[in-house]
Design a protein around this nucleic acid. Structure first.
Lengths: 197, 197
DNA sequence: TTGCGAATGTAGGCGGTGTCAAGATTGTTT
DNA sequence: AAACAATCTTGACACCGCCTACATTCGCAA
């Protein structure tokens, strides 16, 4: 029972194995030749499906953002306004923590520089959710005097920064050891105000 | 007039050229062999000064953080408390924007994983400045009811996040085009309160 | 001054990588 | 059945980090 000439599902297999490798060994240990080796396929076979390594990473990034969108939309079904923003923030942070591989790819400048249209659309979709959250909260009286422009910058920075502060090895050295999930919620509450009881 | 056998200042030349390359072409286009080529030196010469590529990146990272510390200490001579925090935040963000190469290296997981002691010390020094700022501001009545723990997490996340939101290509697609420096100041004011007149 | 060790640079090689080109094999359509 | 497109293999090229052995130069001590 030898390997068939055609793998049959090589493209998906490459993506799946790539995510495994990234979770286990990090982005820089990922190589097309290594994937080909793992899947018992010649070293140039992956090129039929991904002309360049960046194309593979782009595709992975896209499914990663899709997962984020999916999770965010689920929480978005809750009551609009402040509570939804809180869930969104929490959702992003836990998504980033639990999907280190995706998060790492998304933050790779070389991958993003030539982002695909689909990837850009997904990111825009996420951003517009934030905008709507802000809009709804403001019409409910929350920080109604502030410019939405500034609130968006602040919310996006805080959300992205919280995730990175919790994940990035650089910040690990200046992170308090006893950090708990409650503290993260308290941190976002400094911006959103205390949760409704 | 041929090249002398000994370059004379190869170590510094390597560091300087490395920063140039990173600013022009990014971290992944940086190679020891490429640097050797640029400096008209044999491909293995850099190894005398940096046994491994990570050692070069570590050293660059360290001087990068040193520059950040230097700039921060200068602003820290101002009146303590809220105003100092504002300057610190602004200083970090502009540092990150103007030193993309340093910032990119600092955020490389593989470089940070085996950070040198000096690098860790520099980071700790920066963190302790933030702690002191918070302490001073709280003793002046600012958010005196909150836990310093949470304030630190919030401030660090917001600062790091703002820099990344402004720099990272990933966020470029969801960034408002007409973003001005004033908006960044307004954003931090949402946390610190309006500046004293 | 001479000599010798340490520092620095060179030449070559090993295994790894991404990517290209030419050919072999298989699936699909007409 | 034949033609065609998709897929995979083989081989090559240039690049990379890093290792070893050797050459040159510097600096210091006898």
């Amino acid at each position: 029972m030898t390997n068939p000439y055609h793998h049959g599902n090589l493209k998906n297999a490459l993506i799946e194995r790539a995510i495994e490798v990234m979770d286990e060994q990090g982005l820089d240990k990922l190589s097309l030749r290594g994937l080909a080796r793992d899947l018992d396929v010649s070293h140039a076979a992956p090129l039929r499906h991904f002309p360049t390594k960046a194309d593979l990473l782009r595709e992975i990034a896209q499914t990663g953002v899709a997962r984020l969108l999916e999770a965010s939309k689920a929480t978005g079904d809750a009551k609009p306004g402040l509570e939804r923003m809180r869930l969104r923030h929490k959702g992003y942070v836990t998504w980033a923590r639990e999907n280190a591989a995706y998060h790492q790819i998304l933050r790779n400048p070389d991958v993003m520089r030539h982002a695909s249209d689909g990837l850009k659309e997904s990111l825009h979709a996420f951003a517009s959710m934030l905008w709507k959250d802000i809009e709804a909260a403001q019409s409910n009286g929350w920080r109604s005097g502030e410019e939405p422009f500034v609130l968006y910058l602040h919310l996006a920075s805080l959300t992205a920064g919280t995730a990175i502060f919790l994940i990035d090895p650089m910040y690990a050295t200046v992170r308090e050891p006893g950090l708990k999930d409650v503290d993260i919620e308290k941190s976002i509450d400094l911006f959103l105000g205390p949760a409704d009881e």
